[in-house]
């Protein structure tokens, strides 16, 4: 199954390389990886989608925590979270199809962010499922170019309040979270 992991790390040169290198070296299967700034200056935030079983996800969390520049890791798979992806899709248009494409976009609450006589660019935001299904809908018209951000995730308000990042409590929380992984075998 897919696991959603969030990691925070010091915003220093080469940190992305350290993390991606470790994931490759340990032969983990990563479906998507997204990096951005976090609310704290100097701390980047990475969202991973990991394909595997519970043991694999447990190992990814633990190995990520061993990377010195990684300050915290959370497995938010089983928590209430907002999961989103943004896609920019350039679709070929003709005067005949343009209206239909715009209708589909509207149904998906996607926006048209660029348009000319040959094509238009749809900006879709939603879960990966939703983006997938819009893409399938648009594919027959001819997708000329596309970019997807990969999953980003943020826990919902009440869930968020339980965690304090960048403090030692996160390690204990993560520890008990991981600890449960091997108690059941």
């Amino acid at each position: 199954m897919q696991y959603t992991l969030v990691a925070w790390m010091r915003d220093k040169p080469g940190v992305l390389n350290r993390v991606s290198g470790m994931l490759r070296r340990r032969n983990f299967n990563i479906d998507s990886l997204q990096v951005s700034h976090s609310e704290t200056p100097g701390i980047s935030r990475m969202t991973f989608v990991v394909d595997g079983d519970e043991r694999v996800a447990d190992q990814v969390v633990k190995q990520l925590r061993k990377v010195v520049d990684v300050t915290a890791v959370e497995d938010i798979t089983n928590r209430l979270a907002i999961l989103r992806e943004l896609a920019l899709i350039r679709v070929r248009t003709t005067p005949e199809t343009r209206g239909e494409i715009m209708q589909f976009a509207e149904i998906y609450r996607a926006q048209i962010v660029d348009v000319n006589t040959e094509n238009l660019v749809v900006q879709a935001v939603g879960t990966e499922d939703k983006v997938d299904s819009l893409i399938e809908l648009l594919r027959p018209f001819g997708i000329e170019e596309m970019v997807r951000t990969g999953r980003v995730a943020l826990c919902r308000g009440d869930e968020r309040a339980k965690k304090k990042r960048h403090s030692t409590s996160i390690f204990k929380a993560a520890a008990s979270l991981n600890g449960s992984g091997h108690d059941d075998q």
Binding site: Q59, K62, K66
Partner: peptide, 17 residues
């Protein structure tokens, strides 16, 4: 001592980290 070694190759019944 290294938590990442717990469950890497063998999943123990009890881990003492």
């Amino acid at each position: 001592l290294d938590r990442a070694e717990v469950g890497k190759n063998i999943v123990p019944d009890v881990a003492v980290v």
